[in-house]
Design a protein around this nucleic acid. Structure first.
Lengths: 140, 140
DNA sequence: TATGGGGCTTCCCATGATGTCAAGGTCAAG
DNA sequence: CTTGACCTTGACATCATGGGAAGCCCCATA
């Protein structure tokens, strides 16, 4: 039986987050000492490590909730787990693609920016709407 | 002069966000009608478009604040702008690398997961700490 | 002119995951 | 008994955005 601080150190999840996970029902309420201190046994610390690892792979807490349930369910099908993982991979890849597109654009713009004392800058021109830059009050 | 809804449609920034940007001082307070309706002129809509574009490139609002100031400063140096952009690119690339590492691990795990009715699943094994899975109460 | 619909106002709450800070109780060692 | 480390809860911050409620305003149409 460990206190929350010990469980935090043993799992890599901060005490703050352990309490938070409990408050949102990701973890069950654990035993308490007479003074109200939380006490964690080996199984609970193991679940914390599970969460920590899942977070490090970017899984959102809601998915981790499902993963934990599957982990505990001896009758689970690996297909269910795999679906969650591949869906997460798709999410990640979508975000990566979006960011790569940003990087591409930004690098292109930065490449054409002198980066000296002069004020002229293709980056600002792009942001300002290069193809429509400061239209002199198009009477609309 | 446009109302907030018109400015939103013209800029791509939601009315909700326009108000928010004003409240955090990203945008100056604009003119109001007698009834309290905000009114936007062409310059202000232009600034909104600027923000919209910058957000689409992933710039955080604090950086956009600086970019707006530079945009308005005729005595700016393009070097300053370029620094902001390249720093942002570095941020993006760091996040991309992190996510790519997640994807790599997840794909590897998923590849070895049967994805059928059986419960055995390398993904869960990894999360559970494959190399240390359920240590029978290591008396610590 | 009355009424309705749509737009505007402000304010509060929620998201997702985490952190910081504060005020107070507790425990163990000295 | 004091001190310091640890625990408790709760509020607030981050970052950018959305949703919704309550209420006022404006215009068009019947």
């Amino acid at each position: 039986m460990r206190t929350i601080g010990e469980a935090a150190r043993a799992s890599g999840v901060s005490a703050k987050m352990i309490r938070h996970y409990e408050s949102i029902g990701l973890l069950p309420k654990v035993q308490r000492t007479g003074a109200g201190y939380r006490l964690y046994d080996e199984n609970e610390v193991h679940a914390l490590r599970f969460i920590h690892r899942a977070r490090s792979l970017g899984f959102p807490l809601e998915t981790i909730r499902q993963l934990l349930a599957l982990w505990r369910d001896r009758r689970r099908s690996s297909a269910t787990v795999k679906k969650l993982a591949t869906a997460h991979v798709a999410d990640l890849e979508a975000k990566i693609a979006e960011m790569q597109s940003m990087v591409k654009t930004l690098k292109h713009l930065a490449h054409h920016c002198h980066g000296d004392d002069r004020p002229d800058c293709p980056i600002l021109e792009d942001l300002a709407g290069s193809d429509e830059a400061v239209p002199r009050q198009r009477s609309a």
